[in-house]
Protein backbone atom coordinates (compact mmCIF):
# COMPACT_ATOMS: atom_id res chain seq x y z
CA UNK A 1 0.00 0.00 0.00
CA UNK A 2 1.42 3.36 -0.98
CA UNK A 3 0.53 6.76 0.38
CA UNK A 4 -1.37 7.47 -2.86
CA UNK A 5 -3.97 4.80 -2.05
CA UNK A 6 -4.85 6.40 1.26
CA UNK A 7 -4.83 9.90 -0.24
CA UNK A 8 -7.18 8.76 -3.02
CA UNK A 9 -9.66 7.28 -0.55
CA UNK A 10 -9.51 10.46 1.54
CA UNK A 11 -9.97 12.66 -1.54
CA UNK A 12 -13.01 10.68 -2.70
CA UNK A 13 -14.49 10.79 0.81
CA UNK A 14 -13.94 14.56 0.93
CA UNK A 15 -15.61 15.04 -2.46
CA UNK A 16 -18.61 12.92 -1.44
CA UNK A 17 -18.91 15.06 1.70
CA UNK A 18 -18.61 18.25 -0.38
CA UNK A 19 -21.35 17.03 -2.70
CA UNK A 20 -23.56 16.29 0.30
CA UNK A 21 -22.99 19.75 1.83
CA UNK A 22 -23.89 21.41 -1.47
CA UNK A 23 -26.98 19.35 -2.26
CA UNK A 24 -28.72 18.10 0.89
CA UNK A 25 -31.86 20.00 1.86
CA UNK A 26 -32.00 18.70 5.42
CA UNK A 27 -29.75 20.36 8.04
CA UNK A 28 -28.95 16.99 9.63
CA UNK A 29 -27.82 15.73 6.21
CA UNK A 30 -25.49 18.73 5.87
CA UNK A 31 -24.04 18.11 9.35
CA UNK A 32 -23.43 14.45 8.47
CA UNK A 33 -21.65 15.45 5.24
CA UNK A 34 -19.44 17.85 7.20
CA UNK A 35 -18.48 14.93 9.46
CA UNK A 36 -17.42 12.99 6.36
CA UNK A 37 -15.16 15.89 5.31
CA UNK A 38 -13.58 16.08 8.79
CA UNK A 39 -12.86 12.36 8.63
CA UNK A 40 -11.25 12.65 5.20
CA UNK A 41 -8.88 15.25 6.66
CA UNK A 42 -8.12 12.89 9.56
CA UNK A 43 -7.28 10.02 7.20
CA UNK A 44 -4.91 12.34 5.34
CA UNK A 45 -3.17 13.40 8.56
CA UNK A 46 -2.80 9.83 9.80
CA UNK A 47 -1.50 8.67 6.41
CA UNK A 48 1.07 11.47 6.13
CA UNK A 49 2.17 10.75 9.70
CA UNK A 50 2.63 7.05 8.91
CA UNK A 51 4.39 7.38 5.55
CA UNK A 52 6.40 10.61 5.62
CA UNK A 53 7.11 11.18 9.31
CA UNK A 54 7.12 7.77 11.01
CA UNK A 55 9.31 8.78 13.94
CA UNK A 56 6.94 11.48 15.25
CA UNK A 57 3.29 11.56 16.29
CA UNK A 58 2.35 15.15 15.37
CA UNK A 59 -0.12 14.13 12.64
CA UNK A 60 -1.99 11.73 14.90
CA UNK A 61 -2.11 14.34 17.64
CA UNK A 62 -3.50 16.97 15.28
CA UNK A 63 -6.14 14.45 14.14
CA UNK A 64 -7.14 13.96 17.80
CA UNK A 65 -7.59 17.72 18.18
CA UNK A 66 -9.75 17.71 15.01
CA UNK A 67 -11.91 14.90 16.44
CA UNK A 68 -12.44 16.97 19.60
CA UNK A 69 -13.39 20.12 17.69
CA UNK A 70 -15.71 18.10 15.41
CA UNK A 71 -17.49 16.68 18.46
CA UNK A 72 -17.96 20.20 19.87
CA UNK A 73 -19.19 21.44 16.48
CA UNK A 74 -21.77 18.71 16.07
CA UNK A 75 -23.06 19.16 19.63
CA UNK A 76 -23.61 22.91 19.19
CA UNK A 77 -25.00 22.41 15.66
CA UNK A 78 -27.58 19.89 16.81
CA UNK A 79 -28.58 22.08 19.79
CA UNK A 80 -29.06 25.04 17.42
CA UNK A 81 -31.05 22.83 15.07
CA UNK A 82 -33.34 21.76 17.93
CA UNK A 83 -33.92 25.43 18.84
CA UNK A 84 -34.64 26.38 15.22
CA UNK A 85 -36.94 23.42 14.80
CA UNK A 86 -38.86 24.43 17.93
CA UNK A 87 -39.36 27.96 16.57
CA UNK A 88 -39.94 27.32 12.85
CA UNK A 89 -41.14 23.71 12.81
CA UNK A 90 -38.92 22.70 9.91
CA UNK A 91 -35.46 21.21 9.32
CA UNK A 92 -35.05 22.23 5.67
CA UNK A 93 -32.51 24.95 4.91
CA UNK A 94 -34.58 26.77 2.27
CA UNK A 95 -37.19 27.53 4.96
CA UNK A 96 -34.63 29.28 7.19
CA UNK A 97 -35.26 32.73 5.67
CA UNK A 98 -36.03 34.94 8.67
CA UNK A 99 -33.13 37.29 7.84
CA UNK A 100 -34.13 37.64 4.19
CA UNK A 101 -36.33 40.69 4.83
Amino acid sequence: MTLAHYLTVAALLFLIGLFGVLTRRNVIGILMSIELMFNAANVNLAAFDRFLHPEGVAGTTLALLIITVAAAEVVVGLALLMAIHRNLGTAYVEDFNLLKG
Binding site: T2, L3, A4, T8, A11, F14, L15, L18, L52, P54
Partner: peptide
Protein backbone atom coordinates in the same frame (compact mmCIF):
# COMPACT_ATOMS: atom_id res chain seq x y z
CA UNK B 1 -11.86 19.59 -7.41
CA UNK B 2 -11.21 15.87 -7.88
CA UNK B 3 -8.76 16.71 -10.66
CA UNK B 4 -6.53 18.69 -8.26
CA UNK B 5 -6.90 16.34 -5.30
CA UNK B 6 -6.10 13.23 -7.33
CA UNK B 7 -3.12 14.99 -8.89
CA UNK B 8 -1.73 15.46 -5.36
CA UNK B 9 -2.41 11.77 -4.65
CA UNK B 10 -0.58 10.71 -7.85
CA UNK B 11 2.44 12.73 -6.73
CA UNK B 12 2.92 10.31 -3.80
CA UNK B 13 2.28 7.13 -5.80
CA UNK B 14 5.73 5.72 -5.08
CA UNK B 15 5.84 6.41 -1.35
CA UNK B 16 6.01 3.25 0.74
CA UNK B 17 6.14 2.92 4.52
CA UNK B 18 9.76 2.49 5.55
CA UNK B 19 9.38 1.30 9.13
Amino acid sequence: SSEGLLKIARFFSGTLATT
